[in-house]
Design a protein around this nucleic acid. Structure first.
Lengths: 150, 150
DNA sequence: ATAAATTACATTGTACACAATGTAATGAGG
DNA sequence: CCTCATTACATTGTGTACAATGTAATTTAT
């Protein structure tokens, strides 16, 4: 009887984590739409803006996403003209991602987004820092010893 | 130039939140599969186990999910025999969800799941409590003043 | 009582997300 | 060199998630 307590939604840690992540992504949506990106495309572009050039496997490792998600996503980014996909000569199994000039121009439009979203949230910086650290800690804990990270 | 710093993945709070939630859900998957549920079906069943009987709108409000997600999900739970859907006589627009005896039996199989997942995580209870509180705080902040909550 | 607004849910279309499987290229061992 | 395991990505199928739209029932305002 007592053990059913652990099956109550209100006693779960996973649920507020799941729901909050979902609602935060939803907060981004209207701002991202203005620049023609989805949330997942946005975090992919963040990596691509910084690296300029990288391979799909590398991107997947950074975003914790597999090729079943990335393959169609990258094709959409290519269709929109933000990236260019090509074969890596050194290893013809790999796909190289390169940002285009339009892709870099997009960054100038996107640069306001973190501020705009931040303005909607009103979380004090101490809580934000704590939440940042705790989620990173948990993420590292979970994905450590993960075979897919080998 | 400096402002591009805010577009780095590593400086985002949203990303570890998004990735952690995703990976935590993934942790549940093998255990949930043993009892024939997906994660979303599981959190829905948690509410249904506790309430025994409730209307779709109520469930949606508790889970932060809309009918586009819930309608097909509830039909699958009905097909599996865990719930029964019917019209509410007092308001024929509403759909009433009732748990079946098999649905209640499922709870006995599911009762081990929080423990099994907890064993995979190794987060000390202080951090877990903090993370629980911070995500709840942020979730309330975001969904406050939300028209869809009216 | 009746037109108009609202509400509860259903449907459609787009986009993840991932397990499972497939395929071609690379690398390792003999 | 050749076989075999591994790797990087592609494909398929299932299941969310949600915006936008549709529909029928209820409520509100007149």
């Amino acid at each position: 009887m007592q053990s059913y307590e652990m099956l109550k939604l209100e006693n779960q840690l996973c649920f507020p984590l799941y729901a909050t992540a979902k609602e935060v992504v939803r907060l981004y949506t209207p701002f991202l739409r203005e620049v023609g990106l989805t949330y997942t495309q946005y975090i992919a572009m963040m990596v691509i803006w910084e690296k300029r050039s990288l391979v799909v496997k590398e991107l997947g490792k950074l975003l914790f996403l597999d090729t079943g998600t990335l393959t169609p996503l990258l094709r959409k980014l290519e269709q929109k003209g933000f990236i260019q996909l090509s074969n890596l000569p050194e290893d013809r199994r790999s796909i190289l991602i390169n940002v285009t000039p339009e892709g870099m121009k997009l960054r100038d439009d996107a640069v306001e987004i973190p501020l705009k979203v931040g303005a909607c949230v009103q979380m004090d910086s101490e809580d934000a820092k704590l939440l940042f650290e705790l989620t990173h800690k948990l993420l590292n804990q979970i994905t450590k010893g993960d075979a897919s990270n080998a």
